[in-house]
Design a binder for these strands. Structure first.
Lengths: 200, 200, 200, 200
DNA sequence: ACATAACCGAGACGGTACGTCAAGTCTTTCT
DNA sequence: AGAAAGACTTGACGTACCGTCTCGGTTATGT
C-alpha cells in the first residue's frame, strides 16, 4: 500500500492486512469516523496498533485505504447492451445496491465531510471518476449526449444526496423516475405515448 | 437556546452568545468539525469554555446552534412571480450564492457526515424542509407537478452533491442547464423558443 | 514546584500533589524505575495521567520531585552535643534508620544509576550537600579536622555503597566500627577507655 | 554462553559474539541502561537482533554478559610485595584506573541500580568477591587484620560511591589519604613521623 | 555429494509505556 | 449568579522498545 517492498525480512502477513481493511470499513460503517479508534480496529482485527502504523502513516491513511478497498469491491463496468434508460437503470441500481448491501455505503456517509482531506480526496475522486466514466459510456453517441455532464451530475447527485443526507439508498422506482426525467422521457407508468421519441 | 430562563441572577451577555455562534460557524468552515475545538471557540470569542457549556449541553449542541443560526440567515421565500424556470433559477441561485458567500456552505460540507446525529438532524431537516417547500410552491399547479418530489430531489441533490463532494458551488450556467433538464425543456441556448411556454 | 502561580482559576489540588509524591516514592521503592509507570502512579494516587503532566514535564521530573520529597522528610540536623564519635554515631544511625524505614532507601537504590541525569543530579547533590555539611559541623574544630573531606567520603561512601550495592542498611555495630576506624580511635569493644577523650 | 553446543549446523560467528559484548559495554557507558536498546546494539555491531537473542535470553542477559566481560578484563591480582599501604595503593589505583580508562566504569555506574536483579547480582558479586579477596590477602596477617571487613568496606565503599554518585574516579591523593586513615596511620605528607608504627 | 541443522541479516508480529491533545466537569476569584 | 481562568478525569493518538517469529540465504558437519 504504502512502502516500497523490501527484499529481505519477514514479509507482511496478508491476513493481517486484509483483516485491517475489512474491520476498518465495518467500524466506519458502524461507529463513524470518530467512533473508529485505531486501538479498536487493532483489537477487532486480532492484531496490534503497531501493525497498523507499520502499514499506514496514521489513522487517516488506514481509513483511506479501507475506503479504497470498499470502492474496489464495488466497481462495475457499464452494461452497454440495452437502451440508454435500461443501461442507466442497471448501472445505477447496481451501484445503489452495492452501497446498501455492503458497509461501503455507511462508510461513505461517515466520511463525506472529510472528502476534502487529501488522503480521502484521491480515493473519492477515483471512485467518482470511474462512475462518471461508466455513465458517460452509456450516454455517449446517443440523443442525450447534449448536457451529458449535467445529466450525470443530476443522477449521481441525487444518489449521493440521498445516501449522505437522508441515510437511505434510492429504491428502484426513484431511480426509474429520475432516469426518465433526466433523459426528458415520459416515465413508463403512463403507457408509451412517446413511442417515437429517441433513446428507447 | 437550551435552558429555561431563570428569573434571577446576572443575565446572559447577548454579545457573548452572538459571538459564540458566529465564531463557531467560522471555525467549522475553516477547520472542519474536528478542528473546531471548544477551547478554541471560547478563545476566539474572547470568553471561556464554561460560558459555552452554560449555554449548550455539549460541543454538538453548540455546533447545531451555529448551523441553525447560519441557515436562518439564508432562508429565503420563493419568488413566485416569473415562469417556473425563472422562479427555480432565482431560488436556486440565491441558495447557491448564500452557501458560497457565507461560512454556511463550508460548515454544511464539514457537517454532512454527522447529519444523522439527532442534534444535527433536526437542523438539517428543518432547512431542507424549508427548501423543499419553496420548490414545491414553485412547481405546484404547473405541468411539472408530476414527479414533483423526484424533480426536487434531483435539483437539491445536485446542489448539495456539488457542495459536499466537490467543494464548489454551482454556477449560474449549471443551474440553468439542470433546471431545463429536470423540467424537460430545451435549454435556452438555442435562443428562447419556449420562453413563455409552459409553467407560467 | 514548577509553574508560576496564576492568580485566577481553580488552584491545584494539594491532596493530588501530595498523593503523587507519596505514591511515586512507594512505586520506586517497590518496583524500581522501570516498573514505575506514569499510568500506574496515576491510578494508585486515584488521579489521572494528565494531572501528573500538568505538574511535571515528564516522568523524570515526577520521580525527581518524589525523591526530593523523600529527602526532605529525612533531613536532620547534626546532634552536636556529645563527643565526636557519639555525634557521628547518632547522625549516621539516624540517616541509616531513615533510609531503612522509609521508601527513600529503596528509591535511592533504584535511582542511583540515574544520578547523572540533570533532573536527579540536583536532588542528589542537595541531599548530599546537607549530609556533608552536617558531618563537617561535627568534625570541625576537633583533632579530626585534618583530612575531613576524606573522612566524610569514607563514612558516606560506606553507607551508600552498602545501600546501593548490597541492598542493606548498615547496622549500629558497623557504623560504630567505621567511625572509630575513620577517627583513628580504638574501637570501644575494649570497654570504653577513651570515652571522654578527644573531640568533645 | 548460554546453550549446550550442538554438534551440527553452522557455528556461531565469534566476531559477532565479540562485537556484541564490546558494543554493549560501550552503549551502556554512553547511553545508560535505558538508552541501550537491543536494536541499537545489533545495528552498531553490524548484526541483527536475532543474533543477540540466539545468544542471550533477553536484554538483561546481554548486559550482564557485557558487564562480566568488562570485569574480566580488569581483574588484577594483588601485588603483595611492599608494605600494606603500598600494596593497597597499587591495587586500588589499578582498579580506579581500569574503571576510568575503560567503558566499564561508566557501565557500572549505569547498572548500579539494577545490582539486585539476579542476572546482574551474580556478576557484581563475583567482581566484588575478587576485589575483597585481593584486599583481604593484603591485609591478612598484619596489624590491621582487626576489623578487616569494615576497613575493606570503607575503601571499596568510597571508591564506588565516588564512581556511582559523583561520576568521577578517585585520584591518587584521595586513595593515599583514605588508606592512611583506614589503617590508622598518619598521612605521609607530614614527613615520616610514624617510623616505628606497624604495617610499613 | 549432498542432506541436515544451525547460523546469518532483515524486518514483521503482539504488547506495553510514554507524552500529547481534546471533551466535558468542577472549583476558584472577581464583578 | 454569571464570567473568566484553570484545575479535574477520561480516553484516543502516534512513537519507541521488547521479545518472538518468519523469511531467504549461508556455512558447517555427517553420511
Amino acid at each position: 500500500m504504502d512502502k516500497k517492498s523490501k527484499l529481505t525480512g519477514r514479509p507482511r502477513d496478508g491476513r493481517v492486512s486484509d483483516a485491517l481493511l475489512r474491520v476498518t470499513l465495518l467500524e466506519l460503517a458502524a461507529a463513524g469516523y470518530l467512533g473508529t479508534t485505531v486501538a479498536g480496529v487493532a483489537q477487532r482485527a486480532a492484531t496490534s496498533k503497531q501493525a497498523i502504523y507499520r502499514r499506514y502513516r496514521d489513522k487517516n491513511a488506514l481509513v483511506a485505504a479501507a475506503l479504497a478497498h470498499g470502492f474496489e469491491a464495488v466497481r462495475t463496468e457499464p452494461p452497454l447492451r440495452g437502451s440508454v434508460a435500461e443501461d442507466l437503470r442497471r448501472y445505477l441500481s447496481g451501484l445503489a445496491t452495492a452501497l446498501a448491501e455492503t458497509p461501503l455505503g455507511a462508510a461513505v456517509r461517515a466520511l463525506a465531510s472529510y472528502r476534502q482531506k487529501p488522503e480521502f480526496a484521491v480515493v473519492f475522486d477515483e471512485a467518482e471518476t470511474g462512475q462518471r466514466l461508466a455513465l458517460r459510456q452509456i450516454l455517449i453517441a446517443t440523443p442525450f449526449e447534449a448536457d451529458m455532464e449535467t445529466r450525470i451530475d443530476l443522477l449521481l447527485g441525487q444518489l449521493y444526496f440521498s445516501l449522505v443526507f437522508h441515510g437511505d439508498i434510492l429504491n428502484a422506482d426513484d431511480i426509474e423516475t429520475s432516469i426518465h426525467l433526466v433523459l426528458g422521457l415520459v416515465a413508463p407508468r403512463d403507457p408509451a405515448p412517446f413511442s417515437g421519441l429517441p433513446g428507447t
